[in-house]
Design a protein around this nucleic acid. Sequence first.
DNA 1: TGTCATGTTTCAGAAACTCTGAAATTGGGT
DNA 2: ACCCAATTTCAGAGTTTCTGAAACATGACA
Lengths: 293, 293
Amino acid sequence: MTFKIETLRSFCAVARAGNLSDAARRLGRTQSAISMTLKQFEHTLGGALFETERKNRLTKLGEQVLLLAESQIAQFDKTVQAMETLASAPRGVLRIAAVPSVAAFAFPPVVRHLTTQHPGVKIELRDADTQQVFDALLQGWADIGITSAKRNLNGVTATALFREPFGLVLSETHALATRAGPITIHDVFAARFLRNGLCDQIDNPEVLDRLSDVDVNMRNTQSLLAMLLEGDWVTLLPCSAARLVGTGLTFRRISDLPAHRQVFLYQRTEPSSARIVGDAIDVIRALNWPGYD
Amino acid sequence: MTFKIETLRSFCAVARAGNLSDAARRLGRTQSAISMTLKQFEHTLGGALFETERKNRLTKLGEQVLLLAESQIAQFDKTVQAMETLASAPRGVLRIAAVPSVAAFAFPPVVRHLTTQHPGVKIELRDADTQQVFDALLQGWADIGITSAKRNLNGVTATALFREPFGLVLSETHALATRAGPITIHDVFAARFLRNGLCDQIDNPEVLDRLSDVDVNMRNTQSLLAMLLEGDWVTLLPCSAARLVGTGLTFRRISDLPAHRQVFLYQRTEPSSARIVGDAIDVIRALNWPGYD
DNA sequence: TGTCATGTTTCAGAAACTCTGAAATTGGGT
DNA sequence: ACCCAATTTCAGAGTTTCTGAAACATGACA
């Protein structure tokens, strides 16, 4: 007999709960059902998954299998959801995944255009990190992807979308915001600097070196911007990211930092809802992207 | 009711076969069983998957679902295989995925060391392209990965392994092999040039430009090397790739091409078979890697 | 247009699998 | 050594899935 997703689910539930009864309750089954399922799983696998009989400690094998199982379940659920989305849209679906900084700028006009030009078409948008965007493209969860990394993916074509400089983002009231004369890398790191995920992409030895000394690293863009608005913190971002909030922030080029980021547009090559995808691509390309350099 | 992997398998088989009977034969079931499974699948999905009643033409939805389903099945099977591998090795498993050029050099000593130092430990090696190596790491299919791209992966740490120059690889009998004086990019593309997957990684505008004019692109390293050994073809490769065959080929630096490739070693952070992994990492790092520049 | 060959759906019963509830058992803590 | 909480076991009930036969659809061909 072959493995079943439901078996993996049972195993994960027990591993997470630390005992059978709670897991069984969560799954809406009886203890005994879960017990039998697990026993059979261990049997077909040919090794014990738990140390004790009370299921509160995993064996080495159990830990490794748990990682695999959880990842597999997540994958499966995403696939199922993608299928249901496709099925629930008789007129077709357009699924776009983009990194947040671009998503904020690109999604509104795309939505506006599609809802008027293709009424009835279902639109699904998500912002995610670069890796997740690539995953979504590769797994068929998205038709269009936008990231700032170039990568060759099977069945996906990549084209350059725009290029923009990195620079200093800070509150309008910050001293550096209004200071006359050019701003240098030295100035940047002399200020109270916040590190963020995007600035790790900067391809400049001096910056990379100094970044490793920075203590405050923020992953979430929302709170990053909140910090900047607060007062005297600064950070490095590509210029379009500065548009994320309406007012209060400003962007300044760094005179001795030529670093840019190149943003790419990805498109699955063999999607069937071809016309809508092509149309959306056109809209995206026609947007008023930063024209620097 | 939730979807089952077996349902997806049935659907894919029918979609590939173009009719129920053949698919049923492949799956070892009756037509009617498959028919009912499919019918239920379409019902829970809420849309038709086939145009005609004869199942020989997919609907738009069907095509999209097919892509998702095939990818999902492949994923699932790999996960199952990984679980079985883990379970079949009571003393632990070490799974390494590397790009071919590095694999050829790194695998033999690693195997030699582990089989003597850790008898009974199961070793699983595979060479794959960069994307597949990252997939294997992310999905928990491999403990160690080696590629020539830097990428931040969740739950995986990256460290630089070595750095080596790109250069000309060609037969020892080729005119350029013995010619005195430095070889330039111009010389390279004046010869009969074979493009390959690795040389697309070269970060040099002039080379990239010229590469796009090259007509012959070989994906398979084996046959690439065969072509080089044949006679007067040449190609650009990182120097360690030239060691892939014993004799007959030679490597020469290009005077005006400073391009290098940096190779990285990836390691899952929370693997449970920690000691063996750490040991293998040590062996890999201690190898006599190219020491250029 | 009618007929045939091929392939699909439907259906009822059989087979396989999974679940439940109660009783037996186990193991860890005191 | 005992007790309590939790797990395993087991037989029967409940579901799901399969099969084989018969009815039905489709397209090709005369």
